[in-house]
């Protein structure tokens, strides 16, 4: 199962919401879709979910065109919008039962499917609770459960982590990992880049409707210049100034700065080996190192580096 997005275009008047984008992802992958507000993420996702129509281009889910065969395509897609279910006078179970019926699930099979999904999404304990009484995290789980009712191989999630508390976020992350292990292709948009980086197999960075970067995170990092690849934070018991001056003279250090808490932050030109050599060198020079913390450049750095943050 593969999802191919081919030269997709969608304009709203003079605004190019999606401007000739192409990428693909496959079963078992979680794909992050990142970009500033108004970059075209939701539009692309809505086209994939057959809710919108592109001006040009197409998207194929397992070879099925979302334009030519929207009825077939929507059976393959589970869509989790950024809004949460808030129907009045309705319990979680009734909500899922309603959508089960709407997806054409019949009788005993529907009940089995709903029970299984409630268990999988950990909704058993709140199945009789009214939708309006749910917290954001719980409502998000209900939303995911609804999208899984017809067992779609592709899941499209628009900002599922927005406004969730840390526990709910962790639970959602675990849920996504499980879905990925089950072989589902997941396209997820989020502004919480650190979390996205932890679970995603690849990312697409989009701005002004155009793709800026796409691929595996390491590969993007390798191909992106002007990003400090690795930063180290060093704290010693004493001789802070001396440490700072020493680092400035070290060939593998590109830039160093002494912070107010006497920590020295330095950008290392190199990888794991260079960091180890640096630590060994410091000890050899007699610095009493009490903390040596290294941090790799991540999605946040790439995002900040490649996007301009302008709104169309």
């Amino acid at each position: 199962m593969r999802v191919n997005i081919v030269h997709l275009k969608k304009y709203y008047g003079s605004t190019r919401a999606v401007d000739d984008i192409s990428f693909s992802f496959a079963s078992g992958q979680i794909f992050g879709f990142v970009g500033p507000n108004g970059a075209g993420k939701t539009t692309t996702m809505r086209i994939l979910a057959t809710l919108d129509e592109p001006l040009d281009g197409d998207a194929f889910i397992d070879g099925i065109s979302v334009i030519q065969y929207p009825d077939k395509a929507r059976k393959l897609v589970g869509y989790v919008p950024d809004n949460l279910p808030r129907h009045r006078d309705m319990s979680v179970h009734e909500y899922l039962d309603f959508f089960g019926r709407a997806y054409g699930l019949k009788g005993g099979h529907r009940r089995q499917v709903i029970d299984r999904i409630e268990e999988f999404t950990n909704l058993m304990g709140i199945r009789e609770k009214a939708l309006v009484a749910l917290s954001k995290g719980m409502a998000q789980r209900v939303s995911v459960a609804r999208a899984l009712l017809h067992d779609p191989p592709v899941l499209i999630m628009d900002e599922p982590a927005a406004g969730l508390d840390p526990r709910a976020r962790i639970e959602l992350r675990e849920l996504l990992k499980m879905l990925s292990w089950q072989g589902k292709a997941v396209l997820i948009s989020s502004h919480i880049l650190t979390e996205l980086a932890e679970i995603c197999d690849g990312v697409v960075i989009i701005e002004h409707g155009r793709i800026l970067r796409a691929g595996k995170l390491d590969r993007i990092l390798a191909n992106t210049t002007d990003i400090p690849k690795r930063t180290v934070h060093i704290r010693t018991l004493d001789r802070h100034e001396e440490l700072y001056k020493h680092l400035l003279q070290t060939p593998t250090i590109e830039k160093a700065s002494l912070l107010v808490d006497n920590t020295v932050e330095a950008e290392v030109n190199g990888g794991e080996d260079e960091c180890c050599d640096l630590l060994a060198g410091l000890i050899q020079y007699g610095f009493r190192v009490r903390e040596f913390r290294q941090r790799r450049a991540g999605l946040e750095e790439i995002f900040m580096n490649v996007t301009k943050g302008e709104v169309q």
Partner: peptide
């Protein structure tokens, strides 16, 4: 106008294709 084919490695400057 577009066939549902697997995308080749990106050669188009305006779009990035990502062979899975």
């Amino acid at each position: 106008s577009h066939a549902p084919t697997v995308l080749p490695a990106g050669s188009d400057s305006s779009s990035v294709t990502l062979p899975v």
